[in-house]
Amino acid sequence: MRVLLFLSAILAAASVDGRTVSVFLQPVTQQIPPSFLAEIDYDLSSPSEPAAQVTGYEAPEISSNDDLVRVGLYDRSSGEWTSSTTVLSAENFSKGYSPHFILTTGPDGKEVLGVGCRGVRIDAGQTRDFGPQVIVQVTGKGKQVELNKPVILSPEGKKVVQEEKTFLQKYWWVLAIGVFLAVSSGGGDQK
Rank of each mutant, 00 (worst) to 15 (best):
Trp173Ile: 06
Val160Gly: 00
Glu156Cys: 04
Gly131Thr: 01
Val161Ile: 15
Gly142Tyr: 04
Glu111Met: 13
Leu113Ile: 03
Gly131Ser: 05
Lys165Phe: 10
Val179Gln: 04
Gly125Asp: 05
Lys165Asn: 06
Gly140Thr: 05
Gly157Thr: 00
Val161Leu: 15
Thr127Leu: 09
Val138Asn: 11
Lys158Arg: 14
Leu175Cys: 05
Val138Cys: 15
Phe130Cys: 05
Phe130Asn: 07
Glu146Asn: 11
Glu163His: 14
Lys165Cys: 07
Thr139Asn: 12
Arg121Trp: 05
Val112Asn: 00
Ala176Thr: 04
Gln137Phe: 10
Pro155Phe: 03
Gln126Met: 10
Glu164Thr: 13
Asp123Pro: 03
Gly116Asp: 12
Ile177Trp: 09
Gly114Phe: 01
Gly116Trp: 05
Val174Trp: 05
Thr166Ile: 03
Ile177Gly: 11
Val136Ile: 06
Val120Ser: 07
Lys141Met: 07
Gly178Ser: 14
Gly140Phe: 05
Asp129Leu: 07
Asn148His: 07
Val160His: 04
Ile152Thr: 12
Tyr171Gln: 10
Gly116Ile: 02
Gly116Lys: 04
Lys165Trp: 13
Gln162Val: 09
Pro150Ser: 02
Ile152Trp: 13
Glu164Tyr: 09
Lys158His: 07
Gly116Pro: 01
Val174Ile: 12
Tyr171Asn: 12
Gly178Ala: 14
Asn148Cys: 14
Val161Asp: 10
Gln169Met: 01
Leu175Met: 09
Gly142Pro: 02
Val160Cys: 01
Val112Ile: 01
Cys117Arg: 05
Glu111Lys: 15
Lys159Thr: 15
Leu153Cys: 00
Leu175Pro: 00
Gln137Pro: 03
Lys143Trp: 12
Ser154Trp: 00
Thr127Glu: 10
Asp123Asn: 09
Val134Lys: 00
Pro150Met: 03
Ile122Leu: 08
Gly119Tyr: 01
Asn148Ile: 11
Asn148Tyr: 15
Val145Ser: 14
Gln162His: 11
Gly131Ile: 00
Leu153Phe: 05
Ile135Thr: 08
Val115Phe: 04
Val136Trp: 03
Gln169Trp: 02
Val179Cys: 09
Val136Phe: 02
Gly125Asn: 09
Arg128Val: 15
Lys159Tyr: 14
Gln137Val: 15
Leu175Phe: 13
Val112Phe: 00
Ala124Phe: 15
Lys141Arg: 14
Ile135Glu: 10
Thr127Gly: 10
Thr127Val: 07
Lys165His: 09
Gln133Val: 02
Val112Leu: 01
Val134Asn: 02
Trp173Arg: 09
Val134Thr: 03
Ile135Gln: 14
Thr166Val: 04
Gln169Pro: 01
Val134Gly: 01
Glu163Asp: 09
Cys117Thr: 08
Val115Gly: 04
Pro155Ile: 00
Ile177Met: 12
Gln133Cys: 00
Val134Ala: 00
Lys159Ala: 15
Gln137Gly: 05
Ala176Ser: 10
Ser154Leu: 02
Gly125Val: 00
Phe167Gly: 07
Ile122Ala: 06
Val120Asp: 06
Asn148Gln: 13
Gln137Asn: 13
Cys117Lys: 06
Gly142Lys: 12
Val115His: 03
Gly157Leu: 02
Val134His: 01
Val160Leu: 03
Val112Arg: 02
Leu175Gln: 07
Glu111His: 13
Val145Thr: 14
Trp172Ser: 14
Val120His: 10
Asp123Ser: 13
Asn148Ser: 13
Val145Arg: 15
Asn148Glu: 11
Arg121Leu: 08
Val115Asp: 03
Arg121Tyr: 02
Leu147Gln: 14
